[in-house]
Amino acid sequence: MRVLWLSSIACNGNTHSFLNYPYMEQFLNDFEFIYHPVIDSNYSLKEIVTETIACDILLIEGSISDEFKRADVPVVDIITKYAKIVKKIVTVGTCATFGGIFRESDYKDTTGLHFVKEVKIDKFKDLLNKTISLSGCPVHPEVLVNTLYAIKKSVDLQLDNFLRPKDYFAYTVHNGCTRNEYFEYKVDNHKFGELEGCMFYDHGCQAPFTHGSCNKILWNEVNSKTRAGLPCMGCTEPTFPKSNLFGTKKNMGIPQDLPLGVGKRTYLTLAGITKAFTIDRLEKKLFDD
């Protein structure tokens, strides 16, 4: 399959995240980049923008603005041209999907391909049924690569409301976090720099209400931000980046954003019960001497 990797307003974080895919040899045997930001290709960017090169999948990295050009051609024109000939379009990362960090860049009216934050936009609405969104800042390499293989196999992927494959985005980032017990039993004394504790209560962790598989498939095959002790920043969501990312917003002591699908009453009832007991093991250091 022939793939065009088109960068728009980006940091190239997805490009470099993709280079962390462990089975690259296999991938490069099965796919050909007609253009990629760092991998050599048979075509130059000039050829890509001035001609129409045969292509099966269009990957878009970075947020989109009418003002933004690549090789002197507006990126929206390049998208429009290739969208017509490809089988699928994949927005790679949160910028291309929702606008992301560079929604706030100096370019005018910067958006994702189909969304600006949660709001659907009309600009490319004809392409909605061709698009798969892979959000994340950056996208996880396995999420990208396996989605491309699914396209190659013509798998009928189930997508969520933001066109994200449920295989990866039906989970929350919380699923699989090694700090889960501190969350389950509401042990709210997390301190940075420790193996113990949950960052949801005070330090802004968005994992319980963020869609993603970070703790299921792990990053770089070894770890995740929350396992390391860094709060989930919600980088797969349309709202990324929110503000005051290292603090939990609360109303009357209750976190403003609750775990996905959990109502306030349910949460309060559960919290009330857990306050009635103390689990000694979770109050102590994990390696207790």
Binding site: H16, C214, W219, N220, N223, S224, K225, G229, L230
Partner: peptide, 10 residues
Amino acid sequence: AVFGGQYPHT
């Protein structure tokens, strides 16, 4: 990633 949880963008 062992220290920072992931790379890039920790």
